Amino acid sequence: MGQKQSGQEKEHWKRSIEFNSPHLCGCQCLGPLSFHNGSMGSGLSMSIEGRHVERDRKTFQNGLAFSNRPIRVQEKIHLRVEQCDQHWQGALRLGFTSRDPSMSEPFFPPALAIPDLTDTDGFWASILPPGFTMLGAELIFWVTHRGVLVCEGPNGVRYRLLNGVDVRRPLWAMIDVYGQTRAVLLLGSEKKASLRHIQRSCPVPPPPPASHGDSCMCVDKGRPCRNSLDYRLSTDCITSTEADTFAEQDSEQCVVCLSARATEVLPCFHRCLCASCVIPFKRVFRNCPLCRHVIRPTGR
């Protein structure tokens, strides 16, 4: 019953957008904000006036999306996690690019933001702290005048995700709908123009609450629940290929020695090293062996 009501609310919201009177932008309007419809991952589908993107539930990747226009420095983008599939590892990644998505070659974008794009000049992206990617979480992210990528989570706490974004060039927002995050919704943006005035993107009808019925919440505290795999197979929640992936993940084998149990969690939240291998691995390597996220600063 709750799922049916949620679907009716979303349909009513879509119709209210279609029949809403045209918005006349003024000096305090930042313009429309949506996802770029000419450049997005092959696993994504777009809806709700280009402000909602959803990844195919059969894959954890190919979910890269970009803003439809350049984002100004200190323009704060509001985003909400709409759907989750907890049987994957990892979650939403956020960042910016100085590369115009409209001018990209036909095979752009690649499968992942990290490391496929972050190893290339003009792309900056970061994973998010725990709790930021839960179902219904509303996030705010922006880049400062000093090139710092900042994200504010549902609890109001701000995190400096990374430094070095080149603010001398136009920047497009980059959202990787990855892993456990399956759908996100752009809520708009705002920028402080002066002490008394705030510029905002074109107004849109308020969205309905995120629906639990659209998500697969079959994992308890990051681990598959008892019989959760059998449940998802019986409800056609995952494919046979994903079942094989789960069987491999359940062994939790260290990716270095391939014998001991993987118990150590890296800053990117991947648990892939055992207690004996983690220290020597960090001394030699700088990146996670699974996602290439930096785990040790250069020069240490």
Rank of each mutant, 00 (worst) to 15 (best):
H197I: 14
P109D: 01
K221E: 13
E248R: 15
S42H: 11
M40G: 02
T144H: 05
P170V: 07
I127H: 07
G153M: 11
C29E: 00
P297A: 15
E252V: 10
L187P: 03
I77F: 03
P206T: 09
G188I: 07
G153P: 07
S6D: 06
D236H: 11
Q86Y: 14
Q199A: 10
E190C: 13
S234K: 15
R55V: 00
L33D: 14
N227W: 03
C202S: 14
S194H: 05
A183N: 00
L24F: 14
V73T: 10
V284C: 09
N20P: 06
G43V: 02
T133W: 02
A183W: 07
G213V: 01
C257E: 04
M46R: 01
I48Q: 15
R223D: 06
P115S: 09
K191N: 06
D250V: 02
L64G: 01
V157T: 10
D116Q: 03
E138Q: 09
V219D: 05
H12T: 12
V204D: 03
T118R: 03
L171V: 02
I71P: 05
C29V: 05
S34V: 10
D166K: 12
R99M: 11
E11K: 15
Q199N: 08
W13P: 07
G90N: 07
N62S: 09
Q249C: 09
S34A: 12
D230R: 11
R69V: 09
T241Y: 10
F141H: 01
A260W: 02
T245M: 14
Q249A: 10
T144Y: 04
L33K: 10
L33P: 13
V294Q: 05
T59R: 01
L185R: 06
R296Q: 08
H23M: 07
F285E: 15
D116W: 01
F269H: 15
L258H: 14
R271S: 09
G50F: 00
R286Y: 12
K58T: 12
W88T: 00
V255N: 05
